[in-house]
Design a protein around this nucleic acid. Structure first.
Length: 470
RNA sequence: GGGGCGUUAGUCUAGUGGUUAGGACACUGGCCUCUCACGCCGGUAUCACGGGUUCGAGUCCCGUACGCCCUACCA
């Protein structure tokens, strides 16, 4: 299991983690968590922390990982750069890789030209056969370079996918993949192959989107003289319109499901039903039962659509099974506890006269107690629907990128948007307030949004986008 | 554009040559009941299309269509 710590932990990550864990456990193997933080600009430690806590919440615990350690560490790719450099040198020495000095602009130009002339979009291998002198010269000049894999020019690469059987791809279809970026960090392809080998990973269970690049990985194993692992590609979870599941069309962050009160065992169960079924086809089963009955033979290949309705039904089943006592415990473990109320108390204390006022005043913190249906209500005076839509859309994206989530960062985002959009705070904040709380009068917006939680705010922002959509 | 993968009701799925194509969600009719929900009983609705192989095809083969993914110094 090797997620990259970019953004908020994703339901697709949990899906892949579930099957990895079930399979590993069933075979008495180790379920390893490796953090693929090779993209310096997108990776963050908060995101890594969030992966730990979300996967932990789901109960998909790992046997080895950056936080728990293990014999194959380090488990964070950013701490393994020396290993990659060493291995890239091996490839350079044995002629399976070469330096490419083309700049990003140069490559963009090349692609534009290929596109204009309806040619194959592929690196033209302009630096594949640079002379030793030429390389030395450019190196001496201090030119930046990347290292690319030297794919065979002809023939084909065949590998076995555990679910689909043999897959063959013509080598001429495969790009000379960049293995080492000019910043000295490896790309997924190199780091993944090197680590999987060094960590003695026997089964690579990952999403289907990796199938087209698997030949590159096979070629890399060959270049190193290593035995490749078993590859198993899971179908991709889908939105309602069948596209790959995405936050624009679905709540995808695990935090969202926790926040709205989906039980971890229900989400696990539901994920386990995506593409897979128990031998007796039961709908409700535990992790242990899944482990006991797991087999790839029961895995389907069509990309399953993530159906929230069925998740809710399943969750209801689990809740009823809890019984009143355990339900109360769950409630207290969820949001009805001292810390959560303590977060709300300062926001409402000046606004209530009787204790009972707390209930209506805080209801929107706990659930969706309102629905947006009238776009007019969201449009400020002197603005129209389209510009409001655009403003909300822009704000939604800005919120996606707001890390960490607290009143200060939220304020910075909102005010930044005011400037970027040239909207007054008044014009932007009121619709935002309406969207996230359903009310015109609330405690201060930034604190309210913080308490609401990012996932819920994101969900409500996107719901409003549907209402405003031209 | 090129390549790859896929396709059983609206959705999740069972099905490995012979079934009235089974189950679940959703939808819907009823029962239970002060209401609602739960629960229970019932209903509507499916093998993408076209060829072939076969006594017989959802199941095997070929083609087509459609969908998705990849085609980044992101993973």
């Amino acid at each position: 299991m090797a997620p990259s710590p970019t953004g908020d932990p994703h339901v697709g990550t949990a899906y892949v983690a579930l099957f990895n864990r079930v399979f590993a456990r069933q075979h008495g193997g180790k379920f390893v968590l490796r953090i693929e933080d090779t993209d310096q600009s997108r990776s963050s430690t908060e995101s890594e922390q969030a992966i730990f806590s979300s996967l932990g919440w789901l109960g998909l615990t790992w046997d080895e990982g950056p936080d728990v350690g293990g014999p194959m560490g380090p488990y964070r790719q950013s701490e393994r750069t020396a290993i990659y450099r060493e291995h890239i040198q091996m490839l350079l020495d044995n002629g399976h890789a070469y330096r490419c000095f083309a700049t990003a602009e140069e490559l963009a130009e090349m692609r534009a030209h290929q596109k204009a002339n309806k040619l194959q979009l592929r690196y033209d291998r302009r630096h594949r056969e640079l002379s030793k002198e030429e390389i030395e010269r450019r190196l001496a000049e201090g030119q930046d370079y990347v290292v690319r894999l030297k794919m065979p020019e002809d023939g084909a690469t065949t590998f076995t996918d555990g679910l689909r059987g043999e897959i063959t791809i013509q080598n001429e279809e495969i790009d000379d993949q960049i293995l080492l970026k000019s910043d000295g960090f490896p790309t997924y392809h190199l780091a993944n192959v090197v680590d999987d080998h060094l960590m003695e990973i026997s089964h690579v269970i990952r999403a289907e989107e990796w199938i087209p690049s698997t030949p590159k990985h096979v070629e890399l194993y060959r270049a190193f003289g290593w035995e490749p692992p078993q590859f198993i590609h899971l179908p991709l979870l889908r939105n309602e319109d069948k596209s790959k599941i995405s936050k624009r069309k679905n709540p995808v962050s695990l935090e969202y499901y926790e926040r709205v009160g989906i039980l971890p065992e229900a989400l696990r169960n539901f994920l386990g039903r995506m593409g897979w079924s128990m031998p007796d086809e039961s709908e409700k089963f535990s992790l242990d039962e899944m482990e006991a009955n797991f087999t790839w033979a029961k895995m389907g290949l069509g990309g399953p659509i993530f159906d929230l309705k069925k998740l809710d039904w399943l969750n209801g089943l689990y809740i009823r099974e809890l019984g009143p006592e355990a339900l109360v415990d769950r409630l207290m473990g969820w949001r009805i506890h001292r810390e959560a109320l303590l977060e709300l108390a300062p926001l409402i204390i000046e606004r209530i006269e009787r204790l009972e006022d707390v209930i209506p005043m805080t209801s929107y913190f706990f659930g969706d107690d309102f629905t947006l249906d009238d776009p007019q209500a969201l449009i400020p005076k002197k603005r129209d629907k389209l510009s409001t839509y655009r403003a909300v859309k822009s704000l939604t994206e800005a919120i996606d990128n707001t890390h960490p989530w607290n009143a200060e960062t939220i304020e910075a985002t909102l005010r930044g948007q005011c400037e970027a959009l040239e909207w007054s705070p008044r014009d932007l904040f009121m619709p935002t307030r309406l969207i996230v709380t359903g009310r015109k009068a609330t405690p201060p917006l930034f604190e309210t949004m913080e308490a609401l939680g990012k996932a819920r705010v994101q969900a409500r922002m996107r719901a409003s986008l549907k209402v405003l959509k031209p």
